[in-house]
Amino acid sequence: MKIIVCIKQVPDTETRIKLIAGSNRIDTKDVKFIINPYDEFALEEGLRVKEKLGGDVTVITVGSSDVEQSVRECFARGVENGIRIWGDGFENIEPLGTAKVLAKVISNMPYDLIICGKHAIDDDSAQVGILLADFLKIPHVPVVIKAEIYEKEAKLQRQIEGGIEVVGVTLPALFTAQKGLNEPRYPSLKGKMAAKKKSIQFIDGNTLGVDIKPRMHIIDMNLPKARVAGTILKDVEPAEAAVKLVKFLREEANII
């Protein structure tokens, strides 16, 4: 079985994001980058399917050379092939552009199953998976928490509001991974060492003939207000406390 997993490299969830003053960009200095956690579930599922049914897993990413570390992490966990796509103008690529680029590359490859994370935790767009499936004209099943993959078909459980929906699709198909799908593995040392020596296939995005021109522009970007310590009303009568609380909520917190 030919399995493709799309990954994105994102800032670590614990990173304290800083903005470059006077721009709408984040300062990547001191940012620790990781594989998007939902993509990790996708990757793990891909590896498990391969281990069950045979075949190989190819990881594809659209990213600068900094992203190679994440591709190597995928190698360490047992991925066979890694492809990185990048080119001029890709810094401002939007989800639509990314999906087009991925579709162009993947359409020239053999595949049975494509797995993406349900969304990337940096920009929260949640578009690439569904767009990619659409461009490739294959079924798309989002937010999957359990996957049973067979040679020609798949039975997928997806999380829906208040319940679980079980979906059947014929392959090739694309699904996106939700937390709970699996527990991603920790690479073995042998895997890590082998990963250092593997080569990552590079595709020059500018040669693909895909229009990635942005359709939106960011007007402004702001950091959320720093959290301040809570206020505790001590040693006051309940009636008085209630008055103070309402006053606080109205005048300072602007909630009521």
Partner: peptide, 30 residues
């Protein structure tokens, strides 16, 4: 750990935290 990668989730999380943020809690290194 090194050969079999056989460990509990919390052990794995602890390692990942140390890798990403240089501390077992996983709080941002900055």
């Amino acid at each position: 750990v090194l050969d079999d990668s056989s460990m509990s989730q919390e052990v794995q999380r602890c390692f990942t935290n140390m890798e990403n943020n240089s501390n077992p809690w996983g709080i941002g290194f900055s």
